[in-house]
Amino acid sequence: MQEQSSNYRGYRSFDYLEPHADFTVFDLAPELGRVPEHDLGLDTDQSARVTRLLADNHVISLHEHPKILTSDPHQLREYNHTGRNAMGYEGLAKSGMSAFFDNFMNGTNCVTSEHGWKWNDVVYDLGLRFADVAKQDHVVLARTFAEIERAKANGQIALVAGLEAATMIENELDRLDILYGLGVRQMGIAYSMANQLGSGLSEPQDGGLTTFGHRAVERMNKLGIAIDISHSSDQTSLDVIAASSVPVFITHAGARSVWPTNRMKSDEVILACAERGGVIGLEAAPHTTLSKRHPRHSIESVMDHFAYCVDLVGIDHVAFGPDTNFGDHVGLHNSFSGHLAISQAHGHVDYPKVPYVAGMENPAENFTNIVGWLVKNDYADDAIRKAIGSNILRVLKEVW
């Protein structure tokens, strides 16, 4: 595991408040050491190369939820209902990342409702996270390309605020401007279920991008909000790619040709995204990016999708969006399976269940192991540099 950043001073979420008096205290999962470290079997020279690549380059996760979950997954709903999710600052300090796209609670946001994606809940979620981040100086909110580069130069970690769907804007186009003003710089179209903009990936009928959706895409382009189509249906995804004046992201998914579920993207969508200059970030949340070679989910399964996408569209259009957090991610899925439409996304494909994804279990270990795997499998430095950060930066330069 990477050494802790020397710039991290030990801040823990809500240190500026009084526990119990100012906020509800929960028993939280450990940020580090919850599962055994993954051994890739690297030799001394390979390990040194991993350390160098992480230190010298932008290392960016295109999709994370770096909050700390409750030790007991059954308390997650009550935990989220408070609106306060603790962030894993210590784990992030060991991650090797220079930036990450934080997607907050999203579909599990149930501050005022049993279901996510309410406008007030999203604003509550954003504001409380930003307040916590503002009270320390290791993780910094990045709203411009220059701020990402400045964070790297200063030994800090840039947080790019993202949302997995635009459901909360309802039919109010100006809400996109409000979210941009609050700091949001990346947004999905739909999350599994259809909304005013288009169809999600779990809908039985694929209606594509709506008229309002076209207007929303145009507004996001004008604002400089990067668009994500990870959870959108095939036709909606293709419509968004065609409608957008700039490249779009698939921030966290895999290839349906490798694992045949709706949660994965078709070759047609991946190719269309790449042809317009976009990037696909490879997903690692439990039981998503499986493969026939590695049906028991692990880093090897994820990298089967990576290798396939590199062969399909080239190294310039592939990155990583692991979509992980600190704690029992499988327990999180079990607790919110209805909200997240997980069963509809996976369909009826059978696969062995795992308690965690070996090698890509949390944000602290993901990129050390990703770079380690790439080094072990003889990828050149330039290819690794592109996959772990520079491809994402290229798109952001154009979008922002």
Rank of each mutant, 00 (worst) to 15 (best):
P286W: 05
H287Y: 01
T288W: 08
T288R: 07
T288G: 02
T289R: 03
T289S: 13
T289P: 01
L290A: 08
S291Q: 08
S291M: 12
R293C: 12
H294G: 05
H294W: 05
H294K: 04
P295G: 04
R296A: 05
R296H: 02
H297Q: 11
I299L: 14
I299V: 08
E300S: 14
E300V: 05
E300M: 12
E300Y: 11
V302M: 04
D304K: 12
D304F: 08
A307E: 11
C309A: 10
C309E: 01
D311M: 03
L312H: 06
L312I: 13
L312P: 02
I315T: 11
D316H: 03
D316Q: 10
D316E: 13
V318F: 00
A319I: 01
A319E: 02
F320E: 01
G321I: 02
P322F: 07
P322V: 08
D323G: 03
D323E: 04
D323S: 02
T324Q: 03
N325K: 03
N325D: 02
N325V: 04
N325E: 02
D328L: 06
H329P: 00
H329Y: 04
V330A: 05
G331R: 08
G331I: 08
L332N: 02
L332Q: 11
L332G: 00
H333C: 06
F336V: 11
F336M: 11
F336K: 09
S337N: 07
S337K: 11
G338F: 04
H339E: 15
H339L: 14
H339P: 03
H339V: 03
A341F: 12
A341H: 12
I342N: 03
I342Q: 06
S343H: 06
Q344T: 07
A345V: 12
G347W: 09
G347K: 13
G347H: 12
H348G: 07
K353S: 09
K353F: 04
V354F: 02
P355H: 06
Y356H: 09
A358P: 00
A358V: 10
M360N: 04
M360V: 14
E361V: 05
E361H: 07
N362E: 13
P363K: 01
E365F: 01
E365I: 13
T368S: 10
T368P: 01
N369D: 13
N369H: 15
I370M: 06
I370S: 03
I370R: 01
G372E: 10
G372W: 06
G372K: 10
W373L: 01
W373M: 06
V375Y: 09
K376D: 10
K376R: 14
N377C: 12
N377L: 08
D378A: 15
Y379S: 11
Y379M: 15
D382F: 13
D382G: 14
D382E: 15
A383E: 15
R385Q: 15
A387R: 00
I388Q: 01
I388V: 15
G389F: 13
S390P: 12
